[in-house]
Design a protein around this nucleic acid. Sequence first.
DNA 1: AAGGCTTAGTGTCAATCGAACACTTGAAAA
DNA 2: TTTTCAAGTGTTCGATTGACACTAAGCCTT
Lengths: 256, 256
Amino acid sequence: MSISPSLNPHVSVDCVIFGFSKETLRLLLIKRTVPNALTELDDSYYALPGDLVRDNENLDEAAARVLKELTGLTGIFLQQFQAFGDPLRITKAKDRAWLQGVRQDPDARVITVAYMALIESSKVEIQPGSFSKGAVWLPIGEIPELAFDHNEISEGALMALREKVQIQPIAFELLPEKFTMSDLQTLYETILQRDLDKRNFRRKMLNSGVIAALPEKQHGVSNKPARYYVFNRNLFENGPMGFVNLKMEGSFTLFN
Amino acid sequence: MSISPSLNPHVSVDCVIFGFSKETLRLLLIKRTVPNALTELDDSYYALPGDLVRDNENLDEAAARVLKELTGLTGIFLQQFQAFGDPLRITKAKDRAWLQGVRQDPDARVITVAYMALIESSKVEIQPGSFSKGAVWLPIGEIPELAFDHNEISEGALMALREKVQIQPIAFELLPEKFTMSDLQTLYETILQRDLDKRNFRRKMLNSGVIAALPEKQHGVSNKPARYYVFNRNLFENGPMGFVNLKMEGSFTLFN
DNA sequence: AAGGCTTAGTGTCAATCGAACACTTGAAAA
DNA sequence: TTTTCAAGTGTTCGATTGACACTAAGCCTT
């Protein structure tokens, strides 16, 4: 059980990939299968997609590579949020069983740099390949025990997302190109875990200028059709300031 | 000049240590001396204090160790803010000259996890030891070219500090136990790089409840003596919420 | 065709907050 | 006693927040 002290730590990246479907925020997790010495059956459990960082790439590139290998997508919102490096990260038995199978130095300590990715989950097509023993979207409320310290990392990502979403207009990354005001509000409510007032929400969104109304409305719905909006992307990517006031009702701060 | 691709990346921590004295925000930097092959004189330049992470410590512990070795202080505000891992970080000639002298694998790529520390600079007594070839407090406006990517890291720390200071009551870490309202305002103005209105500032600070007035006032000053205040530390460390609204005039957001 | 169902969409008011603004107070020094 | 210097103090106006309830539009059912 001891970790060899002579080995240098290795560095990996792990991606906490958020998606939003059926009114829930979900994480894209991969399935790992390891032989169980006792039962002769395979055990399986979930983990965040990740990989060791290669010598010729920087951290952002490594994270983008992991994301692409799993989902086939590039140009996705992907942001580093924290490094994790507890020496005890890899002491669980099934983690060690898995490492035996895939790493040259299964005992080496690994420091991981965690990224969060926001993607429109309908765009994802799981790629056959190293990760593809199975990948699933699990609702954030139903995440089981994961590999290593991946539960802690996921929690950290969710916290980071909650903060970021009130400072930068990034929630849109989780929605399709066109969306209704209700879609957007539901997304915010899901991320922030509280209800928001419909009228205040619309007012704030429209006044802030982050979205633009389309002429188009929904078709074939059995109630009043909702107008579609688009995110005013260029305003933020090219504008002078990557900032807007997206704080929601009841958020806390210290000076104004 | 090539970086050996077979070596695993190593992991270090670097500390961006902020202090505040003579109305300026300063960084505590260490001096490095390397022989110059041409002139036969030694070249010297500044760097952030940092060290490789040991196998038996986590990242926070490594950063705390670096801070303690340099300043003798423990229990200091110390917060991870970003990992840096560009493969080209260590290609400058003088950086490589220094690595030759101190590292087993001078060619190994190093990923660094950067921390920012906030300390009351008068408490610091530079410790004799590995760092003590010289350490100086340099004003943030007068930082020369540093080792590796340490300029980039310092910039990142300053940005992170500017954001954090408006969300969490951490500026107090830079002041002595007792301080005047003007001390505090000058500090905020220095960090945020803009002037604040005196009356609005006092009102916000007092209403927020983060500070408490002492009965005591200044003595021996040649003008109206200022009242002393203390940071209401337990309110935030033990309270239900580590948050207060410390946003200052003219800051930007997206929803409220 | 009428009525019901469901979600979209809309306005006002009161309270609070933000930003701008100038004079008086207290102590030491001259 | 007067001067000098920073501390300390209130008000007003406009903008923003947050609370709150009804009508509109389309489809479905009967």
